[in-house]
Design a protein around this nucleic acid. Structure first.
Length: 217
DNA sequence: TTGCCGATTACCT
DNA sequence: GGTAATCGGCAAC
């Protein structure tokens, strides 16, 4: 009845089988490491959702690090602590979801020890074969495609729930690095090189994609 | 209680 | 290149 507790369905084109792929979950210790390291290592990882008896997921191709109280672009800048931001202060491995521009949700993986309030924004992902390239291209689209809303903010990704993170398999993807998107208000922090993306993926978001890609190599 | 503005996207020129 | 859409969070009144 309460519309706030309504569960959003994932896009059926994201159906996949993490068991058949022999995917393994990250250990808690991974999420306690430095946030920049985690943002980089999550490129290629699978974000997965269990919904009505089936798994849906996509491989992360773009992330941004947000560095807590010292970072003017972070919601936890200067230790700001409100009900919305509270999940950022939890132990690494929790999820922080917020609603922005009146229409989009953004999902973050909380990092480091409890109280640090650092996180990694998941900006784009690549679905299983057959899924449209741009289905998860952008933080709002990523949440929309997987049906992630603020009702999942604060959950633990490592407690056997219906949202989980799995290691990618195979070779480590080539990584490109730029400043973060959409944080022009953040003073000198807007220049910090905290955006990481799969250099060869066409699912990376943003109008700067081509520019950024041609600049690196 | 009010009013401003955003970790975005789509559509316009 | 620019900006409208749209509404919850939050700071200020």
């Amino acid at each position: 009845m309460n519309s706030k507790e309504k569960i959003a369905a994932p896009d059926p084109r994201l159906r996949f089988d993490p068991i058949a792929l022999h995917l393994k979950e990250f250990a808690r210790s991974f999420f306690l490491r430095p946030t920049v390291y985690i943002a980089r290592q999550l490129i290629g990882a699978w974000l997965a959702r269990y919904y009505k008896g089936a798994w849906y997921g996509a491989q992360i191709v773009e992330t941004e690090a947000y560095l807590g109280s010292i970072d003017a672009a972070a919601h936890s800048w200067r230790g700001r602590r409100t009900p919305r931001v509270e999940p950022m202060y939890r132990l690494g491995g929790h999820l922080y979801v917020f609603f922005v521009y009146g229409m989009h949700h953004c999902a973050n993986v909380v990092t480091r020890k409890e109280g640090t309030a650092e996180a990694v924004l998941l900006r784009a992902a690549q679905g299983p074969p057959g899924a449209p390239l741009r289905l998860l291209s952008g933080p709002g689209r990523l949440c929309s495609a997987l049906g992630i809303t603020t009702s999942s903010s604060g959950i633990d990704l490592l407690s056997g729930g219906d949202l989980r993170l799995f290691h990618g398999r195979g070779a480590k993807p080539p990584i490109a690095i730029t400043h973060r998107i959409g944080v022009d208000y953040a003073g000198e922090a807007k220049e910090w090189l905290l955006r990481f993306y799969h250099a060869n993926s066409d699912a990376v978001s943003g109008p700067t994609q081509m520019c950024a890609r041609s600049r690196q190599s």
